[in-house]
Each structure stands twice: as structure tokens, then as C-alpha cells.
Simulated assay, not measured.
Amino acid sequence: MPSVVGLLEQRELTARRPLDELREEADRIQAELVVAEREWDEGVIARVRRRSRGCRRRQRRPP
């Protein structure tokens, strides 16, 4: 007859596997999100810089 402690440990191991897999997936998704946000920010910064340069050039032209 299996012990109660042994049954509880087996149940814990069974529950831990999907939990560990989900944590690994969450870590992977978080890393992808960081990269995507960085790329997005770089694109926004580049767009703002282009616009600000365009405004400066327009202001320098004679009327």
C-alpha cells in the first residue's frame, strides 16, 4: 500500500510539470516582448526625429 506522503509527492510532481512548462513559455514570451518593444520604440524615435528634422528644414526656407 502506497504511503500518503508518497501519493502527495507524486501528485505534486504531476502538477509541477505543466507549471514549469508554462513558466518557461512565459519567460520566452517575455523575452520576445522585450525585443518587440525595443524595436517599436526605435521606430517611434526614428519617426519623431525625421519629423523634427523636416520641421526645422521648413522653418529655414525663405517665405
Rank of each mutant, 00 (worst) to 15 (best):
D27N: 01
L13W: 03
R23Q: 13
Q59H: 10
D20K: 04
Q30C: 09
V35I: 13
V44S: 07
R11D: 12
P63I: 02
L13Y: 01
E39G: 08
R60M: 08
R49Q: 11
E42V: 00
G6K: 01
R51F: 03
L19W: 05
V5W: 07
R61L: 02
V4L: 15
V4E: 12
P62E: 11
E42N: 02
E32S: 14
R23V: 08
E37A: 10
L8W: 12
C55P: 02
L22H: 07
M1Q: 13
E9P: 03
P63V: 02
E37V: 08
S52R: 14
R56M: 06
Q10E: 14
I29T: 13
E37I: 06
V35Q: 13
R28D: 03
V5F: 10
S3R: 03
C55S: 06
V35D: 15
E24N: 12
E12V: 10
G6A: 11
Q59S: 14
D41M: 10
R60T: 07
R23L: 13
R16W: 00
T14C: 05
M1W: 13
R49E: 15
V5P: 02
R16M: 05
V4Q: 13
S52E: 15
R49P: 04
R50N: 10
S52Q: 15
L8G: 01
L13R: 10
C55A: 07
P18N: 00
V5L: 12
R16L: 08
V4D: 09
E24C: 08
E32D: 15
L22V: 07
I45R: 11
P18M: 00
E32K: 14
S3L: 01
R51L: 13
D27E: 02
A36L: 15
E24V: 11
A15D: 11
V44C: 09
V44Q: 11
R53F: 01
L13M: 10
G43K: 01
Q10N: 12
P18K: 01
V35A: 15
D27F: 04
E39C: 09
E25T: 13
A46T: 12
P62Q: 14
I45Q: 14
E32W: 10
P63D: 02
L33S: 14
L7S: 09
V4P: 11
E42H: 00
E24M: 11
M1E: 15
R47H: 00
T14F: 00
E25R: 15
G43L: 03
Q59A: 15
G43F: 00
E37S: 08
P2S: 05
G6Y: 01
R23I: 09
L13K: 10
G43Q: 04
A15M: 01
E39K: 15
L13A: 02
E39I: 10
R51D: 10
R28G: 02
G54P: 05
A15C: 04
R50V: 06
R17H: 04
R16N: 05
L7N: 12
P2N: 04
E37R: 03
E24K: 14
E9C: 06
C55N: 09
R58F: 06
E42K: 00
L7V: 06
V34F: 10
L7R: 02
R57I: 02
V35M: 09
